[in-house]
Simulated assay, not measured.
Amino acid sequence: MSGKAIVETTQFLTFTLEKEVFAVDIARVREVLEFTSVTKVPRTPDFMSGVINLRGSVVPVVDLRIKFGMQAAGKTVDTCIIIIEIENAGEKTVLGALADSVKEVMSLEPEHIENAPKLGTNLRTEFIRGMGKEGNTFIIILDTDRVFSAEELSSMHDGSDESSSAA
């Protein structure tokens, strides 16, 4: 597992994408919003849904389905935006993560969390902190600081400078 091992009971916010259950450390979650209109920003990566106005601040919204190589889905009454604080290169950034639905806040004991699977060199798993188990269900615990690289964050904020010359 890359990143820090989980050595104490930790609370996670669980959410779904397709039929999979994911989790993020509750300490990184600022709030959960009902889906609202998202303003599309030209020349941003495909996984960038756009931006929302969060109490006067512009917050980028990322479609995690597309980011993780899943098929895009239509919005439902359960679709929500999870506002997450991430840290990259010592700088804190707030972004919204589009999820199919939020499940619950749950505690996971360290003995119920295994290392991220090693599935070969072509599959990127460095953004997975671990695999939680609840009964027969696996919960993919995300390392929110690694889900987005520094390059991706700068392209979301800067409008991707290299693509502006290709017009």
Rank of each mutant, 00 (worst) to 15 (best):
V24C: 05
T144E: 13
D143Y: 11
S149I: 07
S2Y: 09
V105E: 04
P60R: 08
H112I: 12
Q71T: 11
R146H: 11
P117K: 05
E151M: 10
I66N: 08
A167D: 14
L119M: 11
L13A: 01
S149N: 04
A150M: 06
P60D: 02
G130H: 12
E162Y: 12
F35V: 13
T16G: 14
D161W: 08
I140E: 14
E87R: 04
G135M: 05
N115A: 12
T93F: 10
I113A: 00
A116C: 06
L64Y: 04
M156P: 02
L108G: 01
G96W: 01
T93R: 15
A27H: 07
E31F: 00
E162I: 09
H157Q: 13
I6V: 02
T121P: 09
R146L: 05
S107V: 01
V105C: 00
T144H: 04
V51D: 08
N136I: 13
V7T: 14
T9Q: 02
S154K: 08
T14I: 03
R43A: 14
T79W: 05
I66Y: 07
G3H: 03
V38N: 10
T9G: 09
T93D: 14
D46K: 15
D78E: 09
H112Q: 14
L64F: 05
D143G: 14
I6K: 01
M156D: 11
P117E: 03
K92L: 08
M106E: 00
P60E: 05
G50R: 08
S37I: 10
V21R: 07
K75F: 15
G50I: 14
P60N: 08
T121K: 11
N136R: 15
V61M: 07
T9K: 02
I52W: 01
A5C: 12
A167K: 13
R124Y: 04
H157C: 11
S163A: 13
L95T: 06
L13R: 00
V62W: 05
E162K: 08
V58P: 02
H112F: 06
N115P: 12
E85Q: 13
G90C: 05
E151Y: 07
L142Q: 04
E91C: 06
G69T: 02
S160P: 11
S154R: 09
I82H: 05
K133A: 13
V62S: 04
P42R: 05
G56C: 02
V147R: 03
I6L: 02
S155N: 10
T93K: 15
K103I: 06
L98Q: 06
V61P: 03
S164N: 13
E104H: 03
I52E: 09
L95H: 10
S107R: 01
F138N: 15
T36R: 08
A116L: 01
A72W: 07
V105F: 02
A150Y: 03
H112N: 12
M131L: 09
P117Y: 00
I26H: 00
D158R: 10
A99I: 00
L108C: 01
T144G: 10
F138Y: 15
T39I: 13
G159D: 02
P110E: 01
